[in-house]
Design a protein around this nucleic acid. Structure first.
Lengths: 238, 238
DNA sequence: CGGCCTGTTGATCTGTTTCAATTTGGGTGG
DNA sequence: CCACCCAAATTGAAACAGATCAACAGGCCG
């Protein structure tokens, strides 16, 4: 399980695919220059670690492609995945000295990395950016609360249905079109995200397929057959 | 279950107990005047509703005394409490049009209420305040992630231990001193917070008492006897 | 070609829920 | 002041969802 970046690139802002959707979208050209001057684009291979829980929080990140998982560990090794990030998602939003979770690449991943102190300084000059960050934080909070509802009160089937729906909505898989969901993470990752075991996740997928709600062309692809029922199973929106 | 404020008071900022600890602590006297001009202090009795999930998010709040619970409902009535708020806690942090959860008074509660639009306008002029709000959001996010870990991966006993520790740390009960924790919420509330049933919560309390980890002088008071063991059970800090 | 990781499926086990009383305690009206 | 009333809490027995233990299949890489 090697860690460390595969590739580093300077001045990536000017040909950024996601500039408008990410926090940087708030910036005027001159401001973008300032941001660009402090950013490094980095690639990570699957299973590589971006940072560990407890590391000094020296950088902020923006995911520009791929899928990242955030996780926390209990002393005995039990793992909880607190979130999956996709292209456009912000990472490292925390006014604390060290990261509260580990961030690892699920697929091949590209991130933009900003030194925290310099980003902070930029924030002082750009209330626009800070406003945007507050919006990001607010969204993440709402997402976290949906996940709390899921973990605390939903059955295995409801959890899986909710998970698939959120993937369908957020996962920027290229094939996102006709109800075909790209599932880049393993059953184990999914289990650690929705508070189940690998076996239960697998069984639930199989059962949903048996009921005609989904198809499983491959383990990494889910075709939604009956989105009506899937949404109903999910209970709420999430 | 009557709702509605018991008492309203204007210009409450000048004799505010918690001004320094709350977000308002960032303000200079002249700025405090502006805030004071838009704030109303409101009292709620136990079980009264401050706002409902889905209501237009017209106000922001600061809890100045008592205990508030935030909850979400599934269509069939299952409830998940997403958090308890105490004196000094901010409420309504959400850049969205409607509240994502219901807020209800657990005890008698006093809140300071700000109209959202006017508060927003104040924010435009006071980057200091916005910064502070970002800090609040960041803390809430970290707390939410701890709760996700608890809900997804901890046993009933670990959940209760973690809950008690967080109460001991956050609950501003006057008697907070010598390991005596004030537990203002019912077993049912606790259950809906940590993803269990009332019965399991009750049994777990009893068991912890039987093991000499805690004492239960009354259902609303927990005396920590062996904080070492309690912390170990909680697993992490949370 | 062989080994390994991921996923699936089966059989059993168990922590927690569910269902069902019973007890406790605080508030109220006589 | 006391007796009653009701909600909250506790305790017990039975049921169940999901975990655990175990075996096996398929795909990918060396």
């Amino acid at each position: 399980m090697a860690t460390g970046p595969l590739v580093e690139r300077r001045n990536p802002c000017y040909d950024c695919d996601i500039r408008d959707t990410a926090v940087c979208g708030a910036l005027k050209p001159a401001e973008l220059d300032r941001l660009n001057a402090m950013v490094t684009a980095i690639d990570f291979g699957p299973e590589e670690t971006i940072f560990y829980e407890g590391d000094p929080a020296s950088h902020l990140y923006n995911v520009t492609s791929g899928c990242v998982r955030l996780s926390k560990l209990l002393p005995d090794g039990r793992r909880q995945i607190t979130g999956f990030l996709f292209s456009g998602d912000f990472l490292g939003l925390a006014y604390i000295e060290s990261y509260a979770f580990t961030a690892e690449a699920v697929t091949r991943v590209t991130v933009c990395r900003f030194p925290r102190d310099r980003f902070q300084a930029l924030l002082d000059d750009l209330p626009e950016l800070e406003r945007r960050l507050l919006g990001v934080a607010s969204n993440e909070l709402a997402t976290a609360q949906d996940q709390i509802l899921l973990l605390g009160r939903k059955s295995a089937k409801e959890k899986v249905a909710s998970f698939l729906l959120s993937l369908a909505r957020r996962g920027h898989g290229r094939r996102g079109g006709g109800g075909l969901i790209d599932v880049p993470m393993t059953r184990h990752d999914i289990a650690d995200y929705i508070g189940l075991t690998t076996e239960t996740v697998s069984r639930t997928f199989t059962k949903l397929a048996g009921e005609g709600v989904i198809d499983l062309p491959t383990p990494q692809q889910v075709a939604v057959r009956d989105s009506e029922t899937l949404a109903e199973l999910a209970g709420d929106l999430g």
